[in-house]
Amino acid sequence: MKGESHFPVLVPLFALLIVIVIVFTYYRYVIQGDFIMNVVSGCDPTTEKCFLPSCSSAEDPSCPPGPYKKIVIRSGDAPRCLENHSCEHFACDNTSLCTETYCSDAVLEDGESCAP
């Protein structure tokens, strides 16, 4: 076709783009772990301002078992036990992209309450 003579690399370029996306996406997520993870972790209500779960973990597996704090962390920097909800105690270190959110009136969402 006449048009094809002007765009002979159209399809190969597009295919190359797809391959690049696949490769770079793999590198970003699997190799580097370069994505934000939203997770809850155990919290000591005697020393920290903790969230209290308003649900029952027996009925809802996603319901935290006890007082918790919210953590937003770069997945590549997080230990495996964190996303597996099996870390005994986790605290952000200052060297990685990590924030801990403790309970306060300003951050409460529907169904959440703070531990006394």
């Binding site: 770079f24 994505f35 934000i36 996603s62």
Partner: peptide, 15 residues
């Protein structure tokens, strides 16, 4: 968008 990592905002480890 996918290349720039803008397709998925974050991973919710709770769900």
């Amino acid at each position: 968008w996918i290349l720039m990592g803008q397709k998925l905002m974050l991973y919710d480890a709770n769900t």
